[in-house]
Design a protein around this nucleic acid. Sequence first.
DNA 1: GAAGCTCAAAAGTACTACTTATTCAAGATG
DNA 2: CATCTTGAATAAGTAGTACTTTTGAGCTTC
Lengths: 227, 227
Amino acid sequence: MRHEQVLDSLGAAIANGTLTPGTVLRSEELQERYGASRTVAREVVRVLETMRLTSSKRRVGVTVREPAEWNHYDPRLIRWQLDGSARPAALATLNELRSAIEPCAARYAALRATPEERGRLGALGERLARTARARDLSTFLEFDIAFHDLLLAASRNPMFAQLSEVVAEVLTGRTGHGLMPPEPQPEAVALHLEVAAAVAAGDADRAERAMRDIVVQARDEIAALVE
Amino acid sequence: MRHEQVLDSLGAAIANGTLTPGTVLRSEELQERYGASRTVAREVVRVLETMRLTSSKRRVGVTVREPAEWNHYDPRLIRWQLDGSARPAALATLNELRSAIEPCAARYAALRATPEERGRLGALGERLARTARARDLSTFLEFDIAFHDLLLAASRNPMFAQLSEVVAEVLTGRTGHGLMPPEPQPEAVALHLEVAAAVAAGDADRAERAMRDIVVQARDEIAALVE
DNA sequence: GAAGCTCAAAAGTACTACTTATTCAAGATG
DNA sequence: CATCTTGAATAAGTAGTACTTTTGAGCTTC
């Protein structure tokens, strides 16, 4: 419990630049600052070290690394950035990642999904279309996330599958931030149905193309809002 | 030092399935097995926990998680898999990841690279072409890695940039495993030059297309060898 | 047989002592 | 005067002990 508190506090401080790269901390100093024991302080530093947020050297101390060295795929680091001042930049980065992965994931899903997954994907597409017509934005988002989550899982690539949280974050971040049109766009819904159909048919090229259209649309949408 | 030894040993055992998911370890047991102190054992477990390879619960012990839950982007886990029996599967997964990311990275590099980077990319392309003509496969690989590394960095997306090690691993894995033709393919070289030219010109679509052709070629090459 | 209580097991936390590596500087040596 | 050696101080690494908290399992009781 103490461990997590200290870790979150220190990690967030580093992730958001309160502690700038090159800053040196001594472990004794950390114990005092957070009123934690040596054990807790050491283990927290170990964790930060495995995330490559810091590096420890004898006789020097714990130094904060450059952002370029961080392990940017660590879920915790992503969370710290999204919850802090770096949120807009983090969302942009994650959106780019998502737009790179998903078309490829759709391709492999078309090749590897189980019959059951193909069925569920179609069903989700249908429900998506229905909630879109009803203009129920919050359940639309829910089904949208479920759709992309299932697709990533069906790609049978663990590294793709692991990005489901990232995709969920990007999708909710978009609606939550008032960056979405008041109702789901008909073309987007049609493209989701197209992806589901292509996966059902095992047509990799078609699935990839349709998903690429989806992420390109999202990309342009965001780019337009940055203007 | 002790810490790293124990971590590598235990981590590799989990990553390669010697310790199957669901296995329960007690920390005291680990101390004995590796002859390490309580401190070392605890910190190793902490690290494995942050990599989501294990989960610790009071009164139960340290249980090995399902592979689906692991943090597959952790460089250490990637290494353990590549160095173990899971190597072929890991290389396939990483190759898919790489083929998804690089076209997108090329796009953003075309939009965001510094003038200096654009120049260096062109120079690397030239050197690539020269070593290809000379059929110097090992220095060709070296420049190939440098080319992709620079491109990923120039994308200005930290999550893309971080995959440079992965790309390097995939490229060397391909040549090292005797999976490459005895000499670099002329089309691949031409495509690299095309990417460099598109980036230099700031033509995002063209850069993305050329890079997609490169990774598709690599994908088909590997798919053909699996047959 | 279900609800609740007790006990023990195992991780979590705290603290102390000792070891090792590394920096910095003073002093020796050329 | 420059350079190399040596040594002391420092801060992380490792080891070990003691205590706390949680929780699963068996037992009791109604």
